[in-house]
């Protein structure tokens, strides 16, 4: 990737966006009939499908049940055709199990799990096309699916990534920008209280710039929030009109 100009002198990025601009977000809720909640999201070329089952009785070993709250069970998988090179294992490798853990952690923090003791909530996420920001798109899709399932949450969980190139923080990185190996922050935010549910950073970034990059990521999360909120409202409106006033 050497020699590729990630930020032009005019301030445009590889795909023609400005530094703080998001990719186009399109989302749908209630895409499956079988699941309790489901959602589909496109952030640029990253396409993610999320499905939520539950809260239901504990499946598998009952010994895992938590006596004071619900267990959140996640699975993150990437379709074999989602990346440039065909993937051999859709899930179960180190990276996906890490992603699974992160999703679980994010939603354990956001869902009011204490309302459903001894039960289980399953969140399955499938990446159909990976073009950067997989974690963020997965979180956003899972949020919509959880809302569709009617599971109470503290707030929407919105996630976005941010990078730092040529002293400028960039929001919502795409694959090319991620692969360039610059610093990269993924952040899941509860927008109303400004609380960070998950923070992850890779590669090298000087401490002095951390503030700026986190700030850019928070702003991007809030932008995502407006879009998601609009999607939810439209969906609810649609459903109520179908039901008849």
């Amino acid at each position: 990737m050497a020699g590729l100009e990630l930020l032009s002198d005019e301030g445009y990025r590889v795909d023609g966006r400005r530094a703080g601009e998001l990719r186009k977000v399109r989302a749908r809720m209630g895409v499956f009939a079988q699941a309790d909640g489901s959602a589909y999201i496109e952030q640029g070329n990253t396409k993610v499908l999320a499905v939520v089952y539950g809260p239901h009785e504990m499946r598998g070993s009952r010994s895992k049940a938590l006596h004071d709250r619900a267990l959140v069970n996640c699975q993150y998988s990437m379709a074999t055709f989602s990346t440039g090179e065909r993937k051999r294992r859709p899930h179960g490798d180190r990276k996906s199990s890490e992603m699974t853990l992160h999703l679980k952690q994010t939603f354990e923090a956001a869902i009011l799990t204490q309302l459903y003791p001894r039960s289980q909530i399953d969140i399955y996420v499938q990446v159909l096309q990976a073009d950067g920001g997989n974690y963020c798109a997965s979180v956003n899709a899972a949020t919509l699916a959880t809302i569709d399932a009617g599971i109470p949450m503290r707030d929407y969980v919105c996630a976005s990534s941010a990078g730092f190139i040529e002293d400028t923080p960039l929001a919502d990185l795409n694959y090319v920008e991620e692969a360039a190996g610059g610093p990269q922050v993924a952040l899941a935010l509860l927008p109303k209280s400004d609380q960070i549910a998950l923070l992850e950073m890779n590669s090298r970034l000087h401490e002095d710039h951390l503030d700026q990059v986190i700030e850019a990521a928070i702003k991007a999360c809030k932008d995502i929030y407006t879009v998601l909120d609009q999607v939810v409202r439209e969906h609810v409106h649609e459903v109520t009109t179908l039901l008849g006033e």
């Binding site: 853990l101 952690q105 923090a109 960070i196 992850e200 950073m201 090298r204 000087h206 002095d208 700030e215």
Partner: peptide, 29 residues
Amino acid sequence: AMNKHREICTIQSSGGIMLLKDQVLRCSK
């Protein structure tokens, strides 16, 4: 994770805890 040039190499939060930005910055110091 940081090196002696004060470059952050990794940040990872875990456990169901809500952080605020200021806390993160204080920790990095």
